[in-house]
Design a protein around this nucleic acid. Sequence first.
DNA 1: CATGGGATTGACT
DNA 2: GTCAATCCCATGC
Length: 195
Amino acid sequence: MRADFYDRPVLEVAQALIGCVVTHGGASGVIVETEAYHDSEPACHAFVGLTPRTETLFGPPGRAYVYLSYGVHALLNAVCESRGIGAAVLIRALEPLAGVELMAARRGVKPDQRRALCSGPGKLTQALDVTLAHNRSDLRLGPVVISERPARFSDPVVQRDRRIGISKAVDLPWRFCLAGSAFLSAPVRDPAPVS
DNA sequence: CATGGGATTGACT
DNA sequence: GTCAATCCCATGC
């Protein structure tokens, strides 16, 4: 991934990440669903300002922001925009690419259930063994690595929709999905035009 | 398909 | 100390 890939508006990055590959723990998958978060809107953790928790979000772009949701699930985000701006892209679903057996074992499902491996932000971190310890790590250097689109996903058709699982700023169309993918966390409900 | 349990973190009082 | 939080899954209708 280019060094300045994440140093631009978070909505651009959220769209550009569709089709890219996440690799960790002997497994990998193609990003098919993302959401953008920005400190200007209340659904973003950084909305409250700079605290120990949000320090990663306000830090340099290209790092992982990993936090615990509902006391149960680690959720993986890519920090975007310049230092001092709190913005990140939540990785919500992957199409499994490699290490399917390993992912299935970690998830406690059968390997033929490929759609159940990474179809949700908590599922994919479990499948790839991404944990809170990866918070602040560099997404180019690893251990969690995001890399360029494979040829098969070089020019993805992307759909916009409203974000999922939030209670604030619910109307912003800041969810991005690979059109027609069978590996989304939920269907596209309310398509909005892609700018 | 609707509901509710699980069980940790950080912000704020 | 309290409470809300970028969720997943088992259960029961």
